[in-house]
């Protein structure tokens, strides 16, 4: 009876008694890395590809999950500024507070595109730290995975070697895969496209694509008719081949523009599928969609 009570108290105190790591992933791409490096970890994914990660509500379900976490892995660079701080405050979990090893920000592990020294609200929703959507660059993903494997080792020293080993074997396969993708994507080099928001900026940067117009008048503001008319006038001479948006953005503005300038619209998932957590399949899908749009003859 007494041991049962002790066990219950231990359980209530939330001590990670040698059990598998409890991981709270703000976005599915980081959950995918956790699945690779720590397949036994208990994983909760706060958002999915159908949601805009800038605009998540600090829902009770997320608070109760963060309360249990040994590690919270998030993008950072203010992407979650509208909800993560409130979750941290309400979850009252000392392990995932700022400065603790249990809080891991991917954006702190790599250099970001478009860092600003001066930011004000008149510019729209611009992050001073830089563009946070770094998971669309496979080379940056590699560096994040490496830092994460080290962090996992810090939190769970007994298995530190195992995390390093898993990273090593995944990294080797990933590097080869990235080379294959780059080879395949050479047809896309220096092509122009129109997109909504800077969601895919890292993908364009990696594949040497040029985004010549943004459907949003300012970052984070929904497309307006006035702005779309401007895009219509200015973008055509750059000869874009496609309009790209994420699957969580309203399809109407892109469709309207596409109807005016006779371009295909691609609605692409901005992150990996939460069920499969398969990074390869997701990158593969993005690449195939872009290649199909760029080479109409190759469309099946």
């Amino acid at each position: 009876m007494r041991s049962k009570l002790a066990a219950l108290l231990l359980g209530l105190a939330g001590l990670p008694a040698c059990a598998a790591l409890n991981v709270f992933a703000c976005e599915p791409e980081w959950a995918a890395l956790v699945r690779i490096l720590a397949p036994d970890a208990k994983l909760f994914i706060a958002t999915h590809a159908g949601q805009d990660p800038h605009h998540i509500e600090a829902r009770p379900a997320l608070i109760s999950q963060l309360r249990q976490a040994d590690l919270a892995i998030c993008t950072g660079a203010s992407l979650e500024a509208g909800w993560l701080p409130l979750l941290q405050q309400k979850a009252a979990n000392p392990r995932v507070q700022a400065g603790q090893p249990g809080l891991f920000f991917a954006a702190e592990q790599v250099e970001l595109l478009d860092a600003h020294q001066h930011v004000d609200r008149s510019m729209g929703d611009v992050h001073a730290e830089g563009n946070p959507h770094l998971h669309l660059d496979p080379r940056r993903m590699l560096r994040v995975a490496q830092a994460l494997s080290t962090r996992l080792g810090q939190l769970d020293p007994a298995q530190a070697g195992v995390y390093q080993q898993r990273f090593g074997s995944w990294a080797e396969a990933w590097r080869r895969q990235v080379l294959r993708w780059e080879e395949r994507a050479s047809a896309l080099e220096d092509r122009a496209l129109i997109a909504q928001h800077s969601s895919f900026a890292y993908l364009w940067h990696w594949l040497n694509l040029r985004q010549v117009a943004d459907l949003e008048p300012k970052p984070g503001l929904p497309p307006s008719v006035v702005h779309l008319r401007k895009v219509l006038q200015s973008a055509q001479q750059a000869q874009p081949f496609v309009i790209v948006q994420t699957s969580y953005q309203d399809p109407q503005p892109a469709r309207w523009l596409a109807g005016q300038i006779k371009l295909p619209v691609l609605s692409l998932p901005a992150t990996v599928d939460s069920q499969r957590l398969d990074l390869n399949a997701w990158y593969e899908g993005l690449l195939t969609a872009l290649l199909n749009a760029a080479t109409p003859a190759g469309r099946s």
Partner: peptide, 11 residues
Amino acid sequence: VNWLLPTPFYW
């Protein structure tokens, strides 16, 4: 004084 219970739902 608040106590967030270690339940799978929020309490």
